[in-house]
């Protein structure tokens, strides 16, 4: 299983700040499509994705038990 941490808008959309899914073997790009299609998160365009405390590109392959964080850049200041 993989843990996914959600922040800000994404936490609101999902109704929780942590979800568990099995996405190992998928690329990060495939994870985006999966989450957009299977969850209430909606478009993840522009959301930064970190795997094991490191931001990675969409071709990165997720491993078993990898911990994922979805970071929406917010604009306030």
């Amino acid at each position: 299983m993989n843990k996914i941490m959600l922040f800000a808008q994404l936490k609101e959309d999902m109704g929780k700040s942590l979800m568990e899914v099995e996405v190992s073997g998928k690329t990060v790009g495939e994870l985006r499509v999966f989450l957009e299609e299977e969850t209430p998160l909606g478009s993840l365009d522009g959301i930064m994705i970190a795997v094991n405390e490191e931001f990675v590109k969409d071709d990165w392959v997720i491993g078993e038990k990898d911990e994922i964080a979805l970071i929406p850049p917010v604009s306030g200041g």
């Binding site: 490191e54 931001f55 964080a69």
Partner: peptide
């Protein structure tokens, strides 16, 4: 997130 008591320090070089 100070309300959720979360703090992440994320490497960004790969981007």
């Amino acid at each position: 997130d100070l309300w959720e008591n979360e703090y992440l320090s994320l490497k960004a070089d790969a981007l």
